[in-house]
Simulated scan of single mutants.
Amino acid sequence: MRRPFALLLTLLAGVLAFAAVGPAQAACQLIASNGAPPYLIRAALAPDEVGIRYIGHSTFEIETPRGVRIATDYNDSIRPLLAPRVATMNGAHSTHYSVNPDPAIEHLLYGWNPAGGPIDHDLIVEDVRIRNIQTNIRGWDGETRRLGNSIFVFEVADLCIAHLGHLHHRLTQEDLTRLGQIDIVLAPVDNASTLRLDSLMDVLKAVRPAMVIPMHFHFSGALANFLARASAEGFEIVQADGSDLIARRATLPDRPTVTVMMPGGG
């Protein structure tokens, strides 16, 4: 359901106040489409559908047509109700990784190498391909931590979804080339501990997704400020119905759109 931008900002301000108490040419590859029964209690998705649920902070649950569930930035305080089959993590701080992951998780993908150096993932689990592009981050001391973050890319149902993680800088041309064509970006919009708004908007313009879903807006006013800036930059602002949506290539917006999902827990 679409709501006027001014009304949306008013609604968001109330929710947040209450809570405080040049594109690369690679194309997304469809790995598989039909087959096995759903993995989760959710009604079965069609072969061209991907379920996206905003759990909170930077954690989403992504569900594929075959029922493979993936939790992004899986951690020990904000996580899905049920153990995912795949969990990605990032090394910025403890709300982005787990020291006690559920043993039922089949694939645990670190976005940084705890031993130092690069770590590369390119994994196919039934009908989804998961890969990463590492980026540098800043430590609490202000010093650069090389390769401390990963952008995870999920290729499923003819869609490419990129979770930017705890991104701290603009993307290089090499980063953009490795990303390829991205349809949906899960973007941190806090304007403080990750990218500043100017840099974030530069990233979004370079990646050029059809849809941006904000995350990591725990600072007061962060979401409203991002929406105002995105609207000024020409993005349409849409309020999702709840914390879930189903994405399909056929229904991607023609105009660059920010789709706001409020955290819904597991």
Rank of each mutant, 00 (worst) to 15 (best):
R2L: 11
A6L: 13
L7W: 11
L7P: 00
L8Y: 00
L8M: 12
L8D: 06
T10W: 04
A13L: 02
A13M: 01
A17I: 04
A19L: 14
G22N: 01
P23C: 06
P23A: 09
P23K: 09
A27P: 03
A27Y: 03
A27Q: 15
C28D: 00
L30C: 10
I31D: 01
I31H: 05
G35W: 04
A36F: 11
A36N: 12
Y39M: 09
R42T: 13
A43L: 07
A44M: 05
A46G: 13
E49N: 06
Y54Q: 09
H57V: 13
S58T: 12
E61A: 13
I62G: 02
E63F: 05
P65Q: 02
P65N: 01
R66L: 13
A71F: 07
T72Q: 05
D73V: 00
R79A: 13
R79C: 04
P80F: 02
P80A: 00
L82G: 02
P84Q: 03
P84V: 01
P84R: 00
T88C: 08
M89N: 03
S94L: 02
H96C: 11
H96P: 07
H96F: 15
P101E: 03
I119L: 15
D122V: 03
E126D: 15
I130P: 09
I133D: 05
Q134E: 05
Q134A: 10
Q134P: 12
I137T: 15
R138S: 12
G139D: 11
G142E: 07
E143D: 10
E143H: 09
T144I: 15
R146Q: 15
G148A: 09
S150F: 08
I151H: 08
F152V: 09
F154A: 07
F154D: 04
C160Q: 12
A162L: 06
H166F: 14
H168F: 04
G180R: 01
Q181S: 15
I182S: 07
I184C: 10
A187D: 09
A187H: 08
P188H: 07
L195M: 10
M201Q: 07
L204V: 01
L204I: 00
A206M: 07
V207E: 08
P209I: 01
M211Q: 13
M211S: 09
M215R: 06
F217D: 13
F219S: 13
S220I: 11
G221I: 01
A222P: 08
A222S: 15
N225H: 06
A228M: 11
R229C: 03
F235C: 06
G242Q: 09
L245S: 04
A247T: 08
A247L: 12
T251F: 10
D254P: 02
V258K: 03
G264C: 09
G266W: 11
